[in-house]
C-alpha cells in the first residue's frame, strides 16, 4: 500500500476532488464537489458558514469519511478505506480555527511531537528543526512557553509552525484567522503570504476576502454543498457571474 501511495501520475494535480459527497444524517453538506489544487498553487474556499468549507478540508485530511466520490492525492484515491490514512495525514498539514495546540505540552514539544513519533526524528534533530521553524514565525522566544501563555496570534502562528515543521506536501488552513482579534489577523496573514511566495501548496477556507485577493490563484465559492463559481480572484471577487455569489459578496462589503 505504501508503494502505491507515493506512485501516481506525475501529470496529475497534487489534489483532485471528484464528486465528493458527504451528509450528516439527513443534512447534505457536500453534494458532489469537484476541485483541483495544482502543486505550488493556492486555492481559497469562500462561502457562508455551513457551506461545507470545513467539512471539505476535514475530508481531505481524512478526519471525515465521505459518502461518495474520490479524493486524489497525486493521483491516488485516499478516500478508499484500504489506504493507510495515518500515512496520508503524515504528508498533509492541517491548521484549525481554534489552534488546537496541545495544552499540556510546551510550544517546542508541540512542534517536535509528530517529528519524533511519526517522522522518527531524533530528539536533537527534531528540536533543532522546531527552533528554526519557531524563529521563522517570530516565536523564537516562546519555545518553552505553554499554549495558554500565548496571545491568539502567537498561538495560531505556533499551530502553523507545528504543521510546517513536518514539511507537508499540502497545507490545509481552516478559518485560521476567524478566532483572532482584528489587530492580530495581520501577523498570521503576513506569515501565510510569505509561505505562498515560497511555493507552499495551500487549500484555504477563509472569510478574509483581502487575503483571498492577495494570495489565491483560484477562488472557489461554495454554496449549497457544491462549487458554485470558481476562477481567479479578479473573476470571482470583482466580476461574479452567479447571483448567489454576488449576494454573498455584497453582504460582506456592508
Amino acid at each position: 500500500m505504501t508503494a502505491e501511495l507515493t506512485s501516481g501520475s506525475p501529470l496529475a494535480p497534487l489534489l483532485a476532488l471528484r464528486g465528493v459527497r458527504k451528509s450528516f444524517g439527513e443534512h447534505l453538506v457536500l453534494g458532489g464537489v469537484d476541485l483541483e489544487v495544482a502543486e505550488h498553487s493556492c486555492v481559497v474556499l469562500i462561502g457562508a458558514s455551513g457551506s461545507g468549507k470545513s467539512t471539505l478540508l476535514r475530508a481531505v485530511d481524512l478526519l471525515e469519511d465521505i459518502d461518495d466520490g474520490s479524493i486524489q492525492l497525486r493521483g491516488v484515491d485516499i478516500a478508499d478505506p484500504w489506504v493507510d490514512a495515518d500515512a496520508v495525514r503524515a504528508r498533509l498539514g492541517m491548521v484549525f480555527q481554534a489552534y488546537n495546540l496541545f495544552a499540556h505540552l510546551r510550544v517546542l514539544d508541540n512542534l517536535t511531537l509528530a517529528q519524533r513519533l511519526v517522522h522518527k526524528q531524533g530528539k536533537d534533530e527534531a528540536e533543532a528543526a522546531a527552533i528554526e521553524m519557531l524563529a521563522r514565525v517570530g516565536l523564537a522566544d516562546k519555545a518553552t512557553a505553554y499554549p495558554d501563555q500565548l496571545s491568539g496570534g502567537q498561538a495560531q502562528r505556533a499551530a502553523i509552525a507545528r504543521a510546517l515543521v513536518n514539511e507537508p506536501e499540502l497545507l490545509l488552513l481552516d478559518e485560521v484567522t476567524s478566532a483572532l482579534d482584528p489587530e492580530l489577523v495581520g501577523e498570521v496573514l503576513d506569515l501565510l503570504v510569505g509561505l505562498r511566495e515560497e511555493g507552499m501548496t495551500m487549500l484555504v477556507a477563509t472569510h478574509e476576502m483581502g487575503f483571498a485577493r492577495r494570495v489565491a490563484d483560484q477562488v472557489c465559492f461554495l454554496d449549497g454543498g457544491r462549487v458554485l463559481e470558481a476562477g481567479t480572484p479578479e473573476q470571482v471577487l470583482e466580476d461574479p457571474q452567479q447571483p448567489r455569489t454576488r449576494e454573498f459578496l455584497a453582504r460582506l462589503q456592508v
Binding site: 494535480p13 483532485a16 471528484r18 469537484d34 483541483e36 486555492v43 490563484d217 483560484q218 463559481e229 470558481a230
Partner: peptide, 11 residues
C-alpha cells in the same frame, strides 16, 4: 486548473 464549476445542480 479547476474542473468546470458544477453550477447546474444534479437533481
Amino acid at each position: 486548473m479547476v474542473a468546470e464549476p458544477n453550477a447546474v445542480p444534479d437533481q
